[in-house]
Design a protein around this nucleic acid. Sequence first.
DNA 1: AGGTAAACCTGGACGC
DNA 2: TGCGTCCAGGTTTACC
Length: 274
Amino acid sequence: MPELPEVETTRRGLSPHLVGARVERVLLRRPDLRWPIPPEVGARLPGQRIDEVRRRAKYLLLDTSAGSALLHLGMSGSLRVLAAEVPPGAHDHVDIALAGPGGAGRVLRFTDPRRFGCLLWQPPGTTHPLLAGLGPEPLDDAFDGDYLFARSRGRRAPVKAFLMDQRVVVGVGNIYVAEALFAAGVSPLRAAGRVSRERYGQVAGAIRAVLARAIERCGTTLRDFISPDGAPGYFEQELSVYGRGGQPCPRCGRPLRHAMVAQRATVWCGTCQR
DNA sequence: AGGTAAACCTGGACGC
DNA sequence: TGCGTCCAGGTTTACC
């Protein structure tokens, strides 16, 4: 499901419900997610006040003074705040029961059919190893065309794979890389090291614009993404190329090409993207 | 080191 | 209707 805009949409939806609430208890129905949920989650979280809900890359962090719960939604995960009596479904793996301001009688419920997601623990003052090697946030000032140009010298992998590498820049997945490369007029097949500084300026600008717009639209709902309040995302209506292989290019009208690139379904215009 | 492929898991869409 | 196959928004891990 989620790339950066969907995770940010989730964060914004959860934040008003969680910040200031206290964790009453943690119910682990199925702890074998991508990695086992560590005992600290059940042992340290109860009784804590949630101070902040943060996002780093595609991870969410629930900060408390005892440490942070670290969540990733994988491909199919979602988080919702529900009345505690709502019966759990087959893939509702974790309930974090809430108390206190705005939280009484409610649970934060983690659902993930494919179980590619995770719920881990980050002690206070530490950085979890999964977060340690991540690249810059695409919406931060440190991310620009000069940065991409410098990082890409000598790289022969397709620029699509380069941009989806979370060590290079975080948050860009298969949907938004397709949209950004189309907007920038760069072919996803081109070797990363053979894109000019000027064109990386366009790529960086396109990534920022596409992600910012998708956040405004509350993300893209293709299969099962839902925001915490149950609403779908509306960016799907604005997709130019993703999922449109064979259809006319919105710019030149020629059929959009599609192929597997870097083991992912890829759509682009062979005329407008070079 | 960089690049590529397999692996994790379930459900839905499609073809026969 | 049923069954087999393929595909899906991610990321680590293993291997060349």
